[in-house]
């Protein structure tokens, strides 16, 4: 059976993370994350390096990656292989995302077509990380149409988390936009639904081996990371906080809403409002949620890669 382990899982995670970061900044730029935003740059900066680093990990994991690296050039050759497709998409995405980041860095408007191509390629990258596993008939647990869906939603969620986190630490201009929390609430909800649907599909299906893998996650040897790191830390925890945040936003008076969506300088944020302490606290929890979402995303990749049981055990029965 296969030898894919940590490096592949991290590679799949980073592919999704980089793609999600690009799409977060893209969404912010297009105004989907609120009228004012500070998320419209960092995602672009980090996307290409993250995906490139992931690809580098993959290369070190190849049997010949460090021995005969020139063989890798030929990985463009087989158009029926999803891996070849992934290499097309990843290469193009890294290239386009670098160009886009260069424009953003120079504070020049990039041609719209570049931003959009980057966004399409980012979606492709995120989908590919799931597709790579989904087309393997030899591993029934992976062989599901929902696999790329889960990976894309998780990529968007982790990417938005990374972008928010980095924007908090590296952007001078800080914006607190309720819309971001709301979008993240939808993403996490969608992920929960997708994962639940995936398990429902596995258990209602006829593939006994896929059920074996699923059981390994739900009650077996991978149950601890699955339930604690992925479900509790990565999904339920952030979901609870996002729900609470959006409820409290709905309850606040319109004047406060307006004030909350206005921007502040970092140094004024602490002294300006009387409720700044409370805001600071919820801001910290928000950052913690971002970290939690990423931990969950990485855990998801790991447990799915590790749970792979082959369609045939290799023994006679």
């Amino acid at each position: 059976m296969g030898h894919w382990g940590w490096l592949i899982a991290i590679y799949l995670f980073l592919g999704g993370l980089g793609a999600g970061a690009y799409l977060s900044s893209f969404a912010a730029e297009k105004g989907f994350l609120g009228k004012t935003t500070h998320l419209n740059r960092v995602g672009y900066y980090v996307s290409a390096p993250i995906v490139a680093f992931g690809a580098l990990l993959l290369i070190t994991d190849l049997g010949q990656g460090l021995r005969q690296p020139w063989l890798i050039i030929k990985m463009f050759l087989n158009p029926t292989s999803v891996m070849t497709w992934g290499i097309y998409i990843l290469t193009a995405f890294i290239f386009v995302a670098f160009i886009k980041a260069y424009f953003v860095w120079k504070k020049r408007p990039a041609p719209e077509v570049i931003s959009y191509i980057g966004a399409i390629l980012a979606l492709g990258t995120a989908a590919y990380t799931g597709m790579l596993l989904a087309v393997v008939e030899g591993v029934p647990f992976w062989n599901s149409y929902l696999m790329p869906v889960i990976f894309v939603v998780s990529a968007l969620s982790t990417g938005l988390s990374l972008t928010s986190l980095l924007a908090h630490f590296f952007e001078k201009r800080q914006v607190h936009e309720a819309k971001v929390t709301q979008v993240h609430l939808w993403l996490v909800s969608a992920e929960i639904i997708a994962v639940a649907a995936f398990f429902a599909l596995v258990y209602s299906g006829s593939q006994e081996v896929a059920k074996l893998s699923a059981t390994r996650l739900l009650t077996g040897s991978l149950a601890l990371p699955f339930w604690i790191l992925f479900v509790l830390v990565g999904l339920v925890g952030p979901l609870t906080f996002y729900v609470q945040q959006s409820l409290s936003h709905k309850n606040t008076t319109p004047s406060l809403m307006k004030e909350q969506s206005a921007y502040h300088d970092v140094d004024t944020i602490q002294q300006a409002q009387p409720e700044a302490g409370g805001r600071g606290k919820s801001q910290n929890i928000l950052l913690l949620c971002d970290v939690a979402v990423m931990v969950g995303g990485l855990t998801l990749r790991c447990v799915i890669v590790f749970a792979a049981f082959p369609v045939w055990s290799g023994y006679l029965i």
């Binding site: 059976m1 296969g2 030898h3 894919w4 994991d61 190849l62 049997g63 010949q64 990656g65 005969q68 063989l71 890798i72 030929k74 990985m75 292989s81 891996m83 393997v136 008939e137 030899g138 591993v139 792979a308 082959p310 369609v311 045939w312 290799g314």
Partner: peptide, 16 residues
């Protein structure tokens, strides 16, 4: 001599 050792075929082949 062409193989890069990615291991994808090990997962794809149902017969190991």
């Amino acid at each position: 001599t062409r193989c890069v050792g990615c291991g994808y075929c090990l997962y794809a082949c149902p017969y190991h």
